[in-house]
Simulated scan of single mutants.
Amino acid sequence: MSLDRAERVAHQASLDVADLATSWHIQLSEWLSEATEAGLPEPNGMVLATVNTEGEPSTRSVLCKGIDSRGIVFFTNYTSAKSRDLRSSRRASVTFPWFALHRQVNVRGTVDAVSREETAAYWATRPRGSQLGAWASPQSAVMSGRRALEDAFEATRRRFADLEAVPVPPHWGGWLLRPERVEFWQGRPDRMHDRLAFVRNQDQSFKVQRLAP
């Protein structure tokens, strides 16, 4: 599906309770597949929002690397600013901004680090250059200049030159966002958009609510 066709389809789209999949993660997976088929750039890109210990909010784009009944998984440096925020607050929100489809999905909930086994399984799929970069970069730390970063990368490349497989850094891994609320937003004409949210109940089941646009 081309982006032009995606735009035409988006103008005709609607979203009602009867249209939803049986669970939030199946619905999200379906929308992600449609965004991918439409040729959107980085369809698994999402904006991650966190808050630090002073209550200051911060956002940045990360890549969703897993969706299942547990939640949403992404990977990063555990010493980064985002990880410090996540470790202190244990909460986060992400938004998938599929503008060309007139869609977005917002997920809010709690976070936990994934197992080292899950991290290792994903790490093995990463290009070697990305693996070396994860070792070389002290993410979010102040650097004296680009040269210092390039020197760190070159030193890391030499360090692991004789190894066929680069090991997982102890300071790198995945975070799992466990949803308490997942809102699906479908744009409609005249600003009469469709907003349907899966909201977690105390018994861990989800109910669906329609929200005013």
Score class of each variant (00 low, 15 high):
A81K: 12
L28D: 15
R84H: 04
T110I: 01
A18S: 15
S140Q: 04
A13V: 06
R157I: 10
W175I: 03
G39Y: 06
A13G: 05
G145N: 06
L163S: 11
T36P: 10
S69D: 09
A165W: 13
D4V: 00
V94T: 09
R210M: 14
H25R: 01
V9Y: 14
A134G: 02
E54F: 13
M46S: 10
E37C: 00
L176M: 03
G66Q: 01
Q12Y: 05
E117R: 15
M46W: 15
Y78M: 01
N52W: 05
A197Y: 03
D190A: 12
R147C: 00
Q12L: 02
G174M: 04
S69N: 08
F74L: 01
T110E: 03
P189H: 05
R91S: 03
E54N: 14
I72M: 13
K82N: 07
A13E: 01
R147D: 10
V182D: 01
H25D: 15
E117I: 13
H102R: 07
T110H: 04
S23A: 12
L176R: 08
R200T: 11
R8P: 04
A38E: 07
G55Q: 13
S2D: 05
D112E: 02
T22E: 11
M46H: 11
S205V: 15
A121T: 08
R70C: 02
T95A: 05
R128L: 11
W31H: 13
V199K: 06
D68N: 03
Q139T: 09
G133H: 08
F160P: 07
P127V: 11
V199E: 08
G45C: 10
L211V: 02
D112T: 00
A155I: 14
F99M: 03
S61A: 01
D68L: 05
A92I: 00
S89E: 10
E150Q: 09
R128T: 09
V114W: 00
N44A: 12
R188F: 12
E183G: 08
L15M: 07
F75R: 06
V62D: 03
E117W: 09
A18I: 14
I26G: 10
W135F: 14
S69R: 03
F74H: 00
R116W: 10
E30T: 11
L63D: 05
M143H: 06
L176H: 14
R157P: 06
S29Y: 06
P138W: 09
S140T: 14
W31V: 04
A92T: 00
L63N: 07
M1Q: 02
S69I: 11
V47N: 07
S33Y: 12
F184T: 06
Q204I: 08
P41Y: 05
E42G: 11
G133W: 13
S69H: 13
R147E: 05
V105R: 11
A152G: 06
